[in-house]
Amino acid sequence: MKKNIFWMVLATFTLFLLACKKETQIKEAVSGFLGFQKPAHFPEPVYKFANNKVTEGGFKLGRALFYEARLSRNNTVSCGSCHIQSSAFTQHGHEVSHGIDDRLGTRNSPPIMNLAWNKAFMWGGGVFDLDLQPIVPITAHEEMDETLENVMAKLRTVPKYPTMFKTAFGTEEITTARFMKALSQFMLMCVSANAKYDKVMRKEAGATFTADEAAGYALFKTKCASCHSEPLFTDNGFHNNGLAPSNIDDQGLYTATLIATDKYKFKAPSLRNLSYTAPYMHDGRFLTLNGVFEHYNSEVQATPNLDPLLQQNGKRGISLSTDDRAKLTAFLKTLDDTELITRQDLSEQ
């Protein structure tokens, strides 16, 4: 009897030891991956991380899916096709996205960055959760023209995926929810917070604005910051900035809400990484920053729901002199984040 107890105690201890050992091994394995880190000068994220914690396995699976052409009908187009890392995850040089079979969309592909702080997705809203966003490009006729059902079926036939889903979610099962959560994990990690501006704000060693940049920053604060508010450089809101309606009469947010006061409102884009993301506006109509400046300076149209900030004291638009533009450009260039466009862990592997 005594002997039995001795063995039981020993066995229990051994189990405890093994358990401990296993845990330390796991910790060592992931020590290189830090997960989602909120930059110190950023607000709390909007994304519900409680429902989808970013793990190394989930992130790597998401990255593989982001660069996976099987997401499109004929296996030619991946997310990365229109969201190219070197262009801050946009399709630089294309006014509207260029999808499957050379079909053209109606809007400019927006950058994949700082999505954890996004309250709504798409230029015209409509999608309120990052986990639901990829459904749009996958099923859109002019983008990937595929069905989610078929994507899941294709992924199941590729040997690496069941293994990657197991690493990420515990079993090999490939479901819509897991697929979306993995893609979200990758996109959430595309954080842009290491531009010169960020270093100046964080008072990192030696980082200061030049005289022109500082003057541009002051101008920015008086002329642009209401909609493009720091530190994300967007208020995440929808505004009508007075663009003349296009030939297709894209009415923006109104299409998703049918509320008359939403007509011609589009999401205020972030001003980060502008050097890499031309052309500008929801339909890419302006090829250069000067085109944008000129719009605000003299081309703002009195369309329905024009933002009140663009019609103050009986005058439409925001006056921007040549000197203002040079200084603003100097400042805006401090928002270019070379780290985002070169980070190895965000590239196709």
């Binding site: 798409m122 409509g126 999608v127 639901l132 459904i135 749009v136 996958i138 099923t139 859109a140 069905t147 989610l148 059902e149 078929n150 899941m152 819509t176 998703a256």
Partner: peptide, 13 residues
């Protein structure tokens, strides 16, 4: 929401 466009009962956009 993974139904096909024809039979699907979900609006992605």
């Amino acid at each position: 929401p993974s139904g096909t466009m024809d039979d699907g009962m979900y609006w992605g956009w």
